[in-house]
């Protein structure tokens, strides 16, 4: 076969491959890029209360800078993120260690430990709303039967964020535990054998060997949870709708209400794009951290 004929065949193959992959590429672009581009476009529009639309340039973004509710929502989002992520990582690692060492634990008990994250968040929200009801809920009944004072839980502006963080941690700690457990099971046994020969205590082994070796897995779990936590919506919407007052009004809840209750889709899009940028920023930061701790 001459060089020209071979080149022609190669070109043809390339064309065929392009044609065959085109539907998948078009579908991906349509499903991912279009909504993003559309939201960016909406962010430059303004909508009146009656839905009338006009071009607003950067007005939505300049409004955002001076909007007290935006900064409050950002603060609540970050507070919830830090609190929940800390709880989930600490208890997730602990639960993973328990499951790793308690090898004789019956399967049903293991399944029960990790079952909360299989529950739809709306169901979890409804369940905790009933449990934490200050008048009728089981939580205060239990507290009072131990002689402790009842709590307002979700109805207290100062307690609502810790309470929501606890609910989310109840649901997602097992998920973190499952990831960390996978990491634990893949650690090289030779390192532990060497530590044992050197007479390292269990705590020293955990501190100097397990934790450093697990760090890439922990950071992976942190990335996965961060994305969810920064977009936190369902449990708050079910339990408090951003209240009491605006004490649990995260950016996501605020954006939803601006868009779907007050019909200001343009400003809501600007809010959500800003939140998306924050999520991307967090993921990039964690990715850098993961590269730094990789072994």
């Amino acid at each position: 076969m001459s060089d020209t004929a071979a080149t022609l065949t190669q070109d043809r193959q390339k064309l065929e491959m392009a044609a065959l992959s085109a539907p998948a590429v078009i579908f991906t672009v349509a499903m991912i890029a279009f909504p993003v581009v559309y939201t960016i476009w909406l962010g430059f529009q303004t909508f009146s209360s009656t839905g009338k639309q006009s071009f607003a340039g950067l007005a939505n973004y300049s409004k955002l800078v001076s909007d007290i509710e935006f900064w409050h929502g950002l603060w609540i989002t970050i507070a919830l993120f830090v609190l929940s992520l800390t709880l989930q990582l600490v208890f997730g690692i602990w639960l993973a260690l328990v499951l790793f060492h308690a090898r004789r634990l019956p399967g049903i008990v293991r399944s029960l430990f990790i079952s909360p994250f299989m529950m739809p968040p709306v169901v979890a929200g409804m369940m905790w709303l009933v449990i934490l009801d200050p008048s009728l809920g089981a939580a205060n009944y239990i507290l009072q039967s131990f002689g402790l004072p009842p709590s307002d839980w979700l109805a207290s502006p100062s307690l609502v964020i810790p309470t929501v963080a606890l609910i989310d941690s109840w649901q997602w700690t097992p998920y973190v535990a499952l990831i960390v457990l996978g990491g634990l099971q893949s650690l090289p046994p030779s390192v532990y054998e060497a530590a044992q020969i050197d007479g390292a205590s269990p705590f020293k082994t955990f501190q100097r060997i397990t934790l450093p070796l697990l760090l890439p897995t922990i950071v992976t779990a942190a990335i996965l949870r961060s994305v969810d936590l920064l977009r936190f919506f369902d449990i708050i919407y079910i339990t408090t709708q951003g209240g009491p007052g605006n004490a649990s009004n995260t950016l996501n809840i605020y954006g939803f209400r601006v868009g779907f209750e007050f019909f200001n889709i343009g400003y809501a899009s600007a809010l959500m794009l800003t939140l998306t940028a924050i999520v991307f920023g967090a993921v990039l930061a964690f990715n850098r951290l993961r590269s730094a701790v990789a072994w």
Partner: peptide
């Protein structure tokens, strides 16, 4: 506030 249930804001 004075006569309602605890957590009435929800």
């Amino acid at each position: 506030r004075d006569f309602g249930p605890p957590g009435v804001v929800n």
